[in-house]
Design a protein around this nucleic acid. Sequence first.
DNA 1: ATGTGTGAACTATTTCACAGCC
DNA 2: GGCTGTGAAATAGTTCACACAT
Lengths: 285, 285
Amino acid sequence: MASPGGGRAAVVRPLPSRAHRGEGLTERPVPSVEPEEQAVTSRQNRHRERGGRGIPEATVARLPVYLRALTGLQERGVATVSSEELAAAAGVNSAKLRKDLSHLGSYGTRGVGYEVEYLVYQISRELGLTQDWVVAIIGVGNLGRALAGYGGFASRGFRVAGLLDADESIVGQEISGMTVQHIDRLEDIIAGHGVSIAVIATPAGAAQGVCDRVVAAGVTSVLNFAPVVLSVPDGVDVRKVDLSIELQILAFHERRKAGGPDGAAPLAAGDTPPGTSQYVEPVEA
Amino acid sequence: MASPGGGRAAVVRPLPSRAHRGEGLTERPVPSVEPEEQAVTSRQNRHRERGGRGIPEATVARLPVYLRALTGLQERGVATVSSEELAAAAGVNSAKLRKDLSHLGSYGTRGVGYEVEYLVYQISRELGLTQDWVVAIIGVGNLGRALAGYGGFASRGFRVAGLLDADESIVGQEISGMTVQHIDRLEDIIAGHGVSIAVIATPAGAAQGVCDRVVAAGVTSVLNFAPVVLSVPDGVDVRKVDLSIELQILAFHERRKAGGPDGAAPLAAGDTPPGTSQYVEPVEA
DNA sequence: ATGTGTGAACTATTTCACAGCC
DNA sequence: GGCTGTGAAATAGTTCACACAT
C-alpha cells in the first residue's frame, strides 16, 4: 500500500500524466506487431502464434474482471495496488493475476505494485476499449429491453446503434431513449452505423436466420442469447450466454453437495412431482 | 448425413422402454458411489477425486449443450445419432463429444451410435434434472423480468418459487403469473419453499448484501447477474453471467481481425468521439 | 524489505489414432 | 464397414518459488 502520489486523493484524477513512471526509459516489451495468423487454415480453432503477442484466451476472459476491479479502486481514489490486493478484488489468486498481466507487458513496479490508472489504460487498450464499438440489438423482448437499458454497455465504449424487432406491435416503441426499428432495416442499420457486433436476443427459432443476415451484412462478432448453437463461417466469432445452461451446471454441483451421489433429493421441492415428464424411468415395458 | 435409424419417424415416442438395449446384460459402469471429498480442506478449488465418478468441469459445462441438441433431435423424431452428428448439432468435434460421454458411462453402441432418448435420460440424471430445483429470483428489474419469463427454466425442472425486490412500487405487481414479494420475505421464502438456488439480478450495489442473506438462509448455489465479484464462504458455488464482459471479449477478438494489432479502428463509429473519456492518451503533461 | 516477473513443475483439457465390438 | 471408447500424445492453463529490480 502507501499511496505513492502522497495523500489518498479522494478525487479521481482525469489525467495521470504518467510522466513520473520514467516515460523515456521504461521498456515497452510488447509493441512488436504480430502477423495474426487466422482465418487461413480450415481448422476451427485458431491457435494464436505464441510469440510477441498472443494473449491466452483464459487471460483475455479475465482482463475485463481486472478492469472492473481497477475501476472500482480508481473511484475510491486508490493510486497503487499490489497483485495481492487486486487479485483479491477480482476473485483470483495473485500468481494468476501476475501471470496474466505479464502477458500485456511489464506494467508493474517491483517492490511497489501497479499504478491503478496506468493499468486501467493498458488493459483498456489491450481489450480495444479505447475505441468505440457499435452494436445492434436484435430482438426486443424482455431480455432485449434489459440489454438496451444496461449501463455497462455505454460506459465501456459500446454504443447501441439500433434496437430491432420483427413484431409490428413493438416497432416504433421508445426503449431507453431509442426507437425500435423493424427488422427489415437490419442491413441498412449495420451498413449505415458501422455495426461490428450484433447482439441476438430473439427467440430460438429466429436466431440462425438473423445471424445469417448480420454475417452477410458484414458483422464478424455475435453475442448470442438465444438457446441455439449458431453456425457461422470461419472468421466470425460467436459468444453465447445461456441462462438455462448456467442453472444446469449449478444443479449438477448442488446435487453433489447435499444429496448422495445419485438419488436423494437435497432439499428440493417438497411437494411437486418430477418435472421431466418426457422420460419415465424404465420400469419394464 | 443419412438418417441413422432408417425411416424418419415423425412421431416422438413418449417411452422408449429401452428393453432392446439388453437391459439385463448391459454393464452400468458408473453406479459406484464416491465419498465426494469436498469442503474439507481450505483449498479454494476442490479437485474432485479422479476415480469412479468425478466428471471434469469442462465436460459438465458441455452436458447441457448436448442435452439441448438431443432434445431437438428427439422432437424431430430421430431415434439414434452418431457422435459425429450429435457433435455437429452441439458445435463441438466428435472426439470431444465421445470423451465427454465416456465419463458418464458406456451409453453408445459401437458401429451404431447413441440412442437419443436413452442418452437424454442419462445426461438429465447426471445433471440432476430428474429432480426439481427451486429457485428464487432477487431483483425484478428488466433483467429479472426477462428471467422470470424465460421458458428454459420451467422446462428443465427449475421452479421459480418467488420474485423479490426492494422497490415498493414493484412489490405486488404480477410478473409472468407471479406476484413480486418484498425482499423482507427473503428468508421466509427460502425456508418455506426449500429454495436451493438463488438468482441475483439486483443492481451491483445490492448484490453482496443479498448474497450474504441467501447464504445465511442456507442457499448454496448462486447465479449472479450483477457486475460484481461476490465473496462467499467455502462450499457455496457462484456462477456469474456478465454481459459487459462478453462484449469486451468480443471486442478484443474483433480488433485482432480487422484493425492492425494496435491503433486503426476496424469499422467502428465513423462519427463519434472516443467513448472512454476517463483516461486520455498521455500526450505529455 | 518488498513485491513483480517468470522459468519450471504440475494439472487440466483437447486431440489423435486405433483396438474392439456391432 | 462403421462407430464407440479410450490410452497416449499434444496443448493449454495454473501454481510454485525465487531471482531480481526498486
